[in-house]
Design a binder for these strands. Structure first.
Lengths: 212, 212
DNA sequence: GCGTGTGAACCTCTTCACAGCG
DNA sequence: CGCTGTGAAGAGGTTCACACGC
Protein backbone atom coordinates (compact mmCIF):
# COMPACT_ATOMS: atom_id res chain seq x y z
CA UNK A 1 0.00 0.00 0.00
CA UNK A 2 1.30 3.42 -0.95
CA UNK A 3 0.51 6.35 1.28
CA UNK A 4 -0.83 9.16 -0.90
CA UNK A 5 -2.51 12.51 -0.76
CA UNK A 6 -5.41 12.35 1.60
CA UNK A 7 -8.55 14.35 1.55
CA UNK A 8 -10.87 14.26 4.48
CA UNK A 9 -13.85 13.92 2.17
CA UNK A 10 -12.32 10.86 0.62
CA UNK A 11 -11.62 9.30 4.02
CA UNK A 12 -15.16 9.98 5.08
CA UNK A 13 -16.39 8.21 1.96
CA UNK A 14 -14.12 5.24 2.65
CA UNK A 15 -15.83 4.99 6.01
CA UNK A 16 -19.18 4.83 4.22
CA UNK A 17 -17.93 2.16 1.82
CA UNK A 18 -16.76 0.11 4.77
CA UNK A 19 -20.19 0.39 6.32
CA UNK A 20 -21.90 -0.74 3.11
CA UNK A 21 -19.48 -3.61 2.71
CA UNK A 22 -20.13 -4.86 6.24
CA UNK A 23 -23.84 -4.93 5.46
CA UNK A 24 -23.20 -6.70 2.16
CA UNK A 25 -21.07 -9.24 3.98
CA UNK A 26 -23.89 -9.91 6.42
CA UNK A 27 -26.29 -10.32 3.52
CA UNK A 28 -23.90 -12.93 2.16
CA UNK A 29 -22.79 -11.05 -0.95
CA UNK A 30 -19.33 -11.79 -2.30
CA UNK A 31 -18.90 -9.26 -5.08
CA UNK A 32 -19.80 -5.59 -5.37
CA UNK A 33 -19.28 -3.19 -8.26
CA UNK A 34 -18.42 0.47 -7.94
CA UNK A 35 -21.89 1.03 -9.37
CA UNK A 36 -23.62 -0.75 -6.49
CA UNK A 37 -21.42 0.83 -3.86
CA UNK A 38 -22.09 4.23 -5.38
CA UNK A 39 -25.83 3.74 -5.43
CA UNK A 40 -25.92 2.71 -1.78
CA UNK A 41 -23.83 5.70 -0.72
CA UNK A 42 -25.59 8.15 -3.01
CA UNK A 43 -22.61 9.22 -5.11
CA UNK A 44 -21.17 8.51 -8.56
CA UNK A 45 -19.38 5.31 -9.47
CA UNK A 46 -16.45 7.33 -10.81
CA UNK A 47 -15.97 8.84 -7.38
CA UNK A 48 -15.91 5.40 -5.80
CA UNK A 49 -13.32 4.09 -8.23
CA UNK A 50 -11.24 7.22 -7.82
CA UNK A 51 -11.28 6.97 -4.03
CA UNK A 52 -10.21 3.36 -4.14
CA UNK A 53 -7.59 3.74 -6.85
CA UNK A 54 -5.72 6.29 -4.76
CA UNK A 55 -4.60 3.49 -2.48
CA UNK A 56 -4.19 0.59 -4.85
CA UNK A 57 -5.93 -1.65 -7.33
CA UNK A 58 -8.46 -3.63 -5.41
CA UNK A 59 -10.89 -4.63 -8.15
CA UNK A 60 -11.05 -6.93 -11.12
CA UNK A 61 -12.10 -5.57 -14.48
CA UNK A 62 -15.34 -6.97 -15.73
CA UNK A 63 -16.48 -8.24 -12.36
CA UNK A 64 -15.99 -5.77 -9.51
CA UNK A 65 -14.60 -5.91 -5.99
CA UNK A 66 -14.53 -8.88 -3.64
CA UNK A 67 -16.49 -7.76 -0.59
CA UNK A 68 -14.19 -9.34 1.98
CA UNK A 69 -10.96 -8.22 0.39
CA UNK A 70 -12.09 -4.68 -0.24
CA UNK A 71 -13.39 -4.34 3.30
CA UNK A 72 -10.08 -5.60 4.68
CA UNK A 73 -8.18 -3.18 2.48
CA UNK A 74 -10.31 -0.20 3.46
CA UNK A 75 -10.00 -1.06 7.14
CA UNK A 76 -6.27 -1.24 6.63
CA UNK A 77 -6.25 2.18 5.00
CA UNK A 78 -8.36 3.71 7.73
CA UNK A 79 -6.34 1.94 10.40
CA UNK A 80 -9.47 0.39 11.85
CA UNK A 81 -8.31 -3.20 11.56
CA UNK A 82 -7.43 -2.79 15.23
CA UNK A 83 -9.60 0.12 16.27
CA UNK A 84 -8.45 2.32 19.15
CA UNK A 85 -10.34 2.36 22.44
CA UNK A 86 -12.91 5.07 22.96
CA UNK A 87 -13.48 6.84 26.25
CA UNK A 88 -16.10 9.41 27.15
CA UNK A 89 -15.47 12.49 29.25
CA UNK A 90 -18.63 13.76 30.90
CA UNK A 91 -21.43 11.53 32.18
CA UNK A 92 -24.20 14.00 31.44
CA UNK A 93 -27.14 13.26 29.20
CA UNK A 94 -25.12 13.08 25.98
CA UNK A 95 -22.25 11.08 27.45
CA UNK A 96 -24.58 8.53 29.00
CA UNK A 97 -26.72 8.32 25.88
CA UNK A 98 -23.62 7.42 23.87
CA UNK A 99 -22.63 4.80 26.44
CA UNK A 100 -26.11 3.30 26.41
CA UNK A 101 -26.56 3.21 22.67
CA UNK A 102 -23.13 1.65 22.19
CA UNK A 103 -21.25 1.15 18.97
CA UNK A 104 -22.16 -2.34 17.74
CA UNK A 105 -21.66 -3.00 14.10
CA UNK A 106 -19.81 0.22 13.49
CA UNK A 107 -16.42 -1.26 12.82
CA UNK A 108 -15.16 -2.70 16.06
CA UNK A 109 -15.16 0.41 18.23
CA UNK A 110 -16.29 0.10 21.82
CA UNK A 111 -16.72 2.55 24.68
CA UNK A 112 -14.10 1.57 27.20
CA UNK A 113 -14.92 3.90 30.08
CA UNK A 114 -16.77 7.06 31.07
CA UNK A 115 -15.46 9.79 33.38
CA UNK A 116 -16.96 12.68 35.30
CA UNK A 117 -15.70 15.27 37.75
CA UNK A 118 -18.82 15.22 39.90
CA UNK A 119 -18.06 13.08 42.99
CA UNK A 120 -21.78 12.31 43.36
CA UNK A 121 -21.80 10.55 40.00
CA UNK A 122 -18.69 8.43 40.44
CA UNK A 123 -19.45 4.76 40.82
CA UNK A 124 -22.91 5.07 39.31
CA UNK A 125 -23.82 2.86 36.39
CA UNK A 126 -23.81 4.35 32.90
CA UNK A 127 -24.57 1.84 30.17
CA UNK A 128 -22.44 -1.20 30.92
CA UNK A 129 -19.74 0.73 32.78
CA UNK A 130 -19.42 2.58 36.05
CA UNK A 131 -18.63 6.26 36.02
CA UNK A 132 -15.03 6.90 37.03
CA UNK A 133 -13.20 9.95 38.33
CA UNK A 134 -11.46 12.19 35.82
CA UNK A 135 -8.30 11.61 37.83
CA UNK A 136 -8.18 8.15 36.33
CA UNK A 137 -7.99 9.47 32.77
CA UNK A 138 -4.17 9.62 32.49
CA UNK A 139 -3.95 6.03 33.73
CA UNK A 140 -6.30 4.62 31.15
CA UNK A 141 -4.71 6.53 28.30
CA UNK A 142 -1.30 5.21 29.23
CA UNK A 143 -2.73 1.71 29.54
CA UNK A 144 -4.59 1.70 26.22
CA UNK A 145 -1.93 3.68 24.37
CA UNK A 146 -4.18 4.71 21.50
CA UNK A 147 -7.38 6.33 22.60
CA UNK A 148 -10.11 8.41 21.05
CA UNK A 149 -11.72 10.64 23.65
CA UNK A 150 -15.24 11.99 23.34
CA UNK A 151 -15.77 15.29 25.12
CA UNK A 152 -19.35 15.53 26.28
CA UNK A 153 -18.99 17.88 29.24
CA UNK A 154 -21.24 20.77 30.14
CA UNK A 155 -20.78 24.20 28.66
CA UNK A 156 -17.55 25.95 29.47
CA UNK A 157 -15.77 22.84 30.69
CA UNK A 158 -14.56 21.74 27.27
CA UNK A 159 -11.15 23.38 27.25
CA UNK A 160 -10.18 22.07 30.64
CA UNK A 161 -11.28 18.56 29.65
CA UNK A 162 -9.20 18.83 26.50
CA UNK A 163 -6.17 20.01 28.44
CA UNK A 164 -6.40 17.02 30.75
CA UNK A 165 -6.57 14.70 27.73
CA UNK A 166 -3.68 16.36 25.91
CA UNK A 167 -1.48 16.24 29.00
CA UNK A 168 -2.24 12.54 29.31
CA UNK A 169 -1.09 11.96 25.74
CA UNK A 170 -4.41 11.61 23.94
CA UNK A 171 -4.09 12.36 20.21
CA UNK A 172 -7.67 12.17 18.94
CA UNK A 173 -10.75 13.92 20.27
CA UNK A 174 -14.37 14.20 19.23
CA UNK A 175 -15.99 17.14 20.92
CA UNK A 176 -19.68 17.88 21.38
CA UNK A 177 -18.91 21.30 22.83
CA UNK A 178 -19.64 24.45 20.87
CA UNK A 179 -16.55 26.31 22.02
CA UNK A 180 -13.66 26.12 19.57
CA UNK A 181 -10.90 24.39 21.53
CA UNK A 182 -7.26 25.45 21.61
CA UNK A 183 -5.30 22.41 20.56
CA UNK A 184 -1.67 21.47 19.89
CA UNK A 185 -0.74 20.66 16.29
CA UNK A 186 -0.30 16.95 16.89
CA UNK A 187 -3.73 16.39 18.43
CA UNK A 188 -6.65 15.94 16.08
CA UNK A 189 -9.93 17.42 17.24
CA UNK A 190 -13.23 17.05 15.44
CA UNK A 191 -16.59 18.51 16.39
CA UNK A 192 -20.19 17.39 16.36
CA UNK A 193 -22.18 20.61 16.18
CA UNK A 194 -25.87 19.96 16.11
CA UNK A 195 -26.76 23.64 16.08
CA UNK A 196 -24.56 24.26 13.04
CA UNK A 197 -26.34 21.42 11.27
CA UNK A 198 -29.61 23.16 12.09
CA UNK A 199 -28.27 26.38 10.60
CA UNK A 200 -27.26 24.58 7.41
CA UNK A 201 -30.66 22.90 7.22
CA UNK A 202 -32.51 26.15 7.85
CA UNK A 203 -30.52 27.90 5.18
CA UNK A 204 -31.15 25.30 2.53
CA UNK A 205 -34.80 24.96 3.45
CA UNK A 206 -35.39 28.71 3.17
CA UNK A 207 -33.46 28.78 -0.06
CA UNK A 208 -35.51 26.05 -1.66
CA UNK A 209 -38.72 27.75 -0.55
CA UNK A 210 -38.00 30.84 -2.58
CA UNK A 211 -37.03 28.75 -5.60
CA UNK A 212 -33.31 28.09 -5.33
CA UNK B 1 -29.14 41.19 -0.16
CA UNK B 2 -28.28 39.30 -3.31
CA UNK B 3 -28.69 35.56 -3.40
CA UNK B 4 -25.46 34.06 -4.71
CA UNK B 5 -23.59 30.84 -5.17
CA UNK B 6 -23.63 28.90 -1.96
CA UNK B 7 -21.12 26.45 -0.69
CA UNK B 8 -21.97 24.31 2.29
CA UNK B 9 -18.59 24.96 3.81
CA UNK B 10 -19.19 28.68 3.65
CA UNK B 11 -22.60 28.34 5.28
CA UNK B 12 -21.10 26.23 8.01
CA UNK B 13 -18.54 28.96 8.63
CA UNK B 14 -21.25 31.61 8.75
CA UNK B 15 -22.83 29.57 11.50
CA UNK B 16 -19.54 29.70 13.40
CA UNK B 17 -19.23 33.44 12.89
CA UNK B 18 -22.72 33.88 14.25
CA UNK B 19 -21.77 31.88 17.32
CA UNK B 20 -18.67 34.00 17.91
CA UNK B 21 -20.61 37.19 17.41
CA UNK B 22 -23.23 36.16 19.97
CA UNK B 23 -20.47 35.59 22.49
CA UNK B 24 -18.86 38.93 21.62
CA UNK B 25 -22.22 40.60 22.07
CA UNK B 26 -22.56 39.07 25.50
CA UNK B 27 -19.06 40.26 26.37
CA UNK B 28 -20.21 43.74 25.39
CA UNK B 29 -17.99 44.18 22.31
CA UNK B 30 -19.25 46.45 19.57
CA UNK B 31 -16.68 45.99 16.81
CA UNK B 32 -14.89 42.96 15.46
CA UNK B 33 -12.35 42.69 12.65
CA UNK B 34 -12.06 39.80 10.22
CA UNK B 35 -8.77 39.12 11.97
CA UNK B 36 -10.40 38.57 15.35
CA UNK B 37 -13.25 36.55 13.93
CA UNK B 38 -10.75 34.40 12.05
CA UNK B 39 -8.61 33.78 15.12
CA UNK B 40 -11.61 32.67 17.16
CA UNK B 41 -12.80 30.29 14.47
CA UNK B 42 -9.35 29.02 13.59
CA UNK B 43 -9.24 30.10 9.95
CA UNK B 44 -7.70 32.88 7.85
CA UNK B 45 -8.96 36.44 7.80
CA UNK B 46 -9.14 36.33 4.01
CA UNK B 47 -11.59 33.45 4.23
CA UNK B 48 -13.79 35.41 6.62
CA UNK B 49 -13.87 38.47 4.38
CA UNK B 50 -14.54 36.32 1.33
CA UNK B 51 -17.43 34.52 3.03
CA UNK B 52 -19.01 37.79 4.06
CA UNK B 53 -18.42 39.62 0.80
CA UNK B 54 -20.39 37.00 -1.11
CA UNK B 55 -23.56 38.37 0.43
CA UNK B 56 -22.85 42.06 0.69
CA UNK B 57 -20.59 44.68 2.16
CA UNK B 58 -21.09 44.56 5.88
CA UNK B 59 -17.88 46.11 7.13
CA UNK B 60 -16.18 49.49 7.25
CA UNK B 61 -12.65 49.85 5.95
CA UNK B 62 -10.19 50.77 8.61
CA UNK B 63 -12.39 49.69 11.50
CA UNK B 64 -14.11 46.34 11.01
CA UNK B 65 -17.62 44.98 11.46
CA UNK B 66 -20.27 46.15 13.89
CA UNK B 67 -21.08 43.10 16.02
CA UNK B 68 -24.83 43.68 16.13
CA UNK B 69 -25.23 44.50 12.49
CA UNK B 70 -23.08 41.68 11.23
CA UNK B 71 -24.89 39.18 13.44
CA UNK B 72 -28.24 40.39 12.18
CA UNK B 73 -27.04 40.12 8.59
CA UNK B 74 -25.67 36.63 9.03
CA UNK B 75 -28.86 35.48 10.72
CA UNK B 76 -30.75 36.94 7.81
CA UNK B 77 -28.57 35.05 5.34
CA UNK B 78 -28.93 31.79 7.23
CA UNK B 79 -32.63 32.37 7.69
CA UNK B 80 -32.31 31.98 11.43
CA UNK B 81 -33.79 35.34 12.32
CA UNK B 82 -36.96 33.32 12.90
CA UNK B 83 -35.63 29.82 13.42
CA UNK B 84 -37.87 26.88 12.54
CA UNK B 85 -39.22 24.57 15.24
CA UNK B 86 -37.30 21.40 15.94
CA UNK B 87 -38.93 18.08 16.74
CA UNK B 88 -37.33 14.80 17.71
CA UNK B 89 -38.40 11.41 16.45
CA UNK B 90 -37.41 8.62 18.81
CA UNK B 91 -37.34 8.93 22.59
CA UNK B 92 -34.45 6.55 23.09
CA UNK B 93 -31.24 7.48 24.82
CA UNK B 94 -30.05 9.90 22.14
CA UNK B 95 -33.42 11.55 21.59
CA UNK B 96 -33.94 12.12 25.30
CA UNK B 97 -30.38 13.32 25.79
CA UNK B 98 -30.96 15.98 23.15
CA UNK B 99 -34.22 17.01 24.78
CA UNK B 100 -32.57 17.23 28.18
CA UNK B 101 -29.51 19.14 27.09
CA UNK B 102 -31.63 21.64 25.15
CA UNK B 103 -30.48 24.28 22.73
CA UNK B 104 -30.01 27.46 24.77
CA UNK B 105 -27.76 30.06 23.32
CA UNK B 106 -27.47 28.33 19.98
CA UNK B 107 -29.39 30.82 17.93
CA UNK B 108 -32.97 30.62 19.01
CA UNK B 109 -33.74 26.99 18.24
CA UNK B 110 -35.86 25.01 20.67
CA UNK B 111 -37.06 21.43 20.82
CA UNK B 112 -40.79 21.63 20.36
CA UNK B 113 -41.80 18.00 20.88
CA UNK B 114 -40.55 14.43 21.00
CA UNK B 115 -42.28 11.39 19.49
CA UNK B 116 -42.01 7.64 19.85
CA UNK B 117 -43.88 4.63 18.50
CA UNK B 118 -43.66 2.65 21.72
CA UNK B 119 -47.05 2.95 23.48
CA UNK B 120 -45.36 2.32 26.83
CA UNK B 121 -43.32 5.49 26.46
CA UNK B 122 -46.09 7.83 25.40
CA UNK B 123 -46.97 10.37 28.06
CA UNK B 124 -43.69 9.93 29.91
CA UNK B 125 -41.59 12.98 30.63
CA UNK B 126 -38.56 13.62 28.46
CA UNK B 127 -36.75 16.84 29.28
CA UNK B 128 -39.44 19.50 29.56
CA UNK B 129 -41.90 17.74 27.26
CA UNK B 130 -44.03 14.63 27.32
CA UNK B 131 -43.41 11.92 24.76
CA UNK B 132 -46.12 11.90 22.11
CA UNK B 133 -47.31 9.29 19.65
CA UNK B 134 -45.82 9.33 16.17
CA UNK B 135 -49.38 9.61 14.89
CA UNK B 136 -49.30 13.22 16.03
CA UNK B 137 -46.36 14.10 13.80
CA UNK B 138 -48.37 15.21 10.75
CA UNK B 139 -50.44 17.47 12.95
CA UNK B 140 -47.52 19.32 14.45
CA UNK B 141 -45.77 19.74 11.11
CA UNK B 142 -48.88 21.26 9.59
CA UNK B 143 -49.26 23.50 12.64
CA UNK B 144 -45.67 24.73 12.74
CA UNK B 145 -45.29 24.90 8.96
CA UNK B 146 -41.49 24.93 8.99
CA UNK B 147 -39.95 22.15 10.98
CA UNK B 148 -36.56 20.53 11.33
CA UNK B 149 -36.93 16.91 12.40
CA UNK B 150 -34.21 15.00 14.20
CA UNK B 151 -34.32 11.26 13.57
CA UNK B 152 -33.00 9.42 16.61
CA UNK B 153 -34.77 6.09 16.27
CA UNK B 154 -33.30 2.65 16.78
CA UNK B 155 -31.48 0.83 14.05
CA UNK B 156 -33.51 -0.09 11.02
CA UNK B 157 -36.37 2.28 11.81
CA UNK B 158 -34.82 5.30 10.12
CA UNK B 159 -36.35 4.96 6.69
CA UNK B 160 -39.86 4.50 7.99
CA UNK B 161 -39.45 7.52 10.26
CA UNK B 162 -38.24 9.56 7.32
CA UNK B 163 -41.16 8.45 5.16
CA UNK B 164 -43.62 9.57 7.83
CA UNK B 165 -41.91 12.96 7.98
CA UNK B 166 -41.79 13.42 4.23
CA UNK B 167 -45.44 12.50 3.86
CA UNK B 168 -46.28 15.09 6.49
CA UNK B 169 -44.44 17.77 4.53
CA UNK B 170 -41.22 18.06 6.50
CA UNK B 171 -38.40 19.51 4.39
CA UNK B 172 -35.36 19.31 6.68
CA UNK B 173 -34.03 16.34 8.61
CA UNK B 174 -31.02 15.63 10.78
CA UNK B 175 -30.49 11.92 11.12
CA UNK B 176 -28.45 10.04 13.69
CA UNK B 177 -29.03 6.75 11.88
CA UNK B 178 -26.22 5.07 9.99
CA UNK B 179 -28.39 3.85 7.15
CA UNK B 180 -28.32 6.11 4.11
CA UNK B 181 -31.93 7.24 3.71
CA UNK B 182 -33.84 7.38 0.45
CA UNK B 183 -35.06 10.94 0.15
CA UNK B 184 -37.00 13.06 -2.35
CA UNK B 185 -35.06 15.88 -4.04
CA UNK B 186 -36.84 18.67 -2.20
CA UNK B 187 -36.11 17.32 1.29
CA UNK B 188 -32.73 18.09 2.81
CA UNK B 189 -31.23 15.36 4.96
CA UNK B 190 -28.03 15.67 6.92
CA UNK B 191 -26.34 13.06 9.07
CA UNK B 192 -24.50 12.94 12.36
CA UNK B 193 -22.28 9.89 12.08
CA UNK B 194 -20.20 9.40 15.17
CA UNK B 195 -18.61 6.21 13.90
CA UNK B 196 -17.45 7.94 10.70
CA UNK B 197 -15.87 10.64 12.86
CA UNK B 198 -14.06 7.88 14.72
CA UNK B 199 -12.81 6.47 11.43
CA UNK B 200 -11.51 9.88 10.35
CA UNK B 201 -9.83 10.35 13.72
CA UNK B 202 -8.29 6.90 13.65
CA UNK B 203 -6.97 7.46 10.17
CA UNK B 204 -5.33 10.76 10.96
CA UNK B 205 -3.95 9.51 14.27
CA UNK B 206 -2.33 6.48 12.63
CA UNK B 207 -1.03 8.67 9.85
CA UNK B 208 0.62 11.11 12.19
CA UNK B 209 2.17 8.26 14.15
CA UNK B 210 4.13 7.06 11.19
CA UNK B 211 5.21 10.61 10.37
CA UNK B 212 2.67 12.03 7.97
C1' DG C 1 -19.64 -7.21 -23.03
C1' DC C 2 -18.68 -5.50 -18.53
C1' DG C 3 -16.41 -2.85 -15.01
C1' DT C 4 -11.99 -1.06 -13.37
C1' DG C 5 -8.34 2.41 -13.30
C1' DT C 6 -6.90 6.91 -14.92
C1' DG C 7 -5.36 10.97 -17.96
C1' DA C 8 -7.50 15.17 -18.96
C1' DA C 9 -10.95 18.67 -18.64
C1' DC C 10 -13.69 20.96 -15.62
C1' DC C 11 -15.23 23.18 -11.71
C1' DT C 12 -15.10 24.87 -7.01
C1' DC C 13 -12.84 26.66 -3.07
C1' DT C 14 -8.80 28.87 -0.98
C1' DT C 15 -5.04 31.99 -0.72
C1' DC C 16 -2.51 35.94 -2.09
C1' DA C 17 -1.87 40.60 -2.59
C1' DC C 18 -3.37 45.01 -3.28
C1' DA C 19 -6.53 48.89 -4.53
C1' DG C 20 -9.53 51.80 -2.18
C1' DC C 21 -12.07 53.77 1.48
C1' DG C 22 -12.63 55.54 6.22
C1' DC D 1 -2.46 54.05 8.65
C1' DG D 2 -5.74 49.97 9.20
C1' DC D 3 -8.95 46.95 7.46
C1' DT D 4 -12.29 45.73 3.98
C1' DG D 5 -13.53 43.84 -0.50
C1' DT D 6 -11.91 41.52 -4.60
C1' DG D 7 -9.37 40.34 -9.07
C1' DA D 8 -6.11 36.95 -10.11
C1' DA D 9 -3.44 32.90 -9.21
C1' DG D 10 -3.22 28.58 -7.22
C1' DA D 11 -4.68 24.22 -5.20
C1' DG D 12 -7.81 20.56 -4.69
C1' DG D 13 -11.65 17.75 -5.82
C1' DT D 14 -14.98 15.97 -9.18
C1' DT D 15 -16.61 14.35 -13.58
C1' DC D 16 -15.91 12.61 -18.13
C1' DA D 17 -14.69 9.29 -21.22
C1' DC D 18 -11.95 5.73 -22.70
C1' DA D 19 -8.11 2.25 -22.82
C1' DC D 20 -7.30 -2.00 -20.88
C1' DG D 21 -8.03 -6.53 -18.69
C1' DC D 22 -11.24 -10.14 -17.41
Amino acid sequence: MIAAKVSEKSIRRLSHYARCLRLAKIRGEFIMTSQQLAATCGISSAAVRRDLSIYGEFGKQGSGYKVNDLLANIENILGTTNPPSVIIIGAGSIGCALMISGLDGTGGYAYEAVFDNDPAKIGRQCGEKQIRSIEEIPGIIKEKKEVIAVIAVSRGAGQSALNTLVDAGCKAVLSFTLEPLKTPEDVEVRYVEVSTEFDVLTHSMRRKERGD
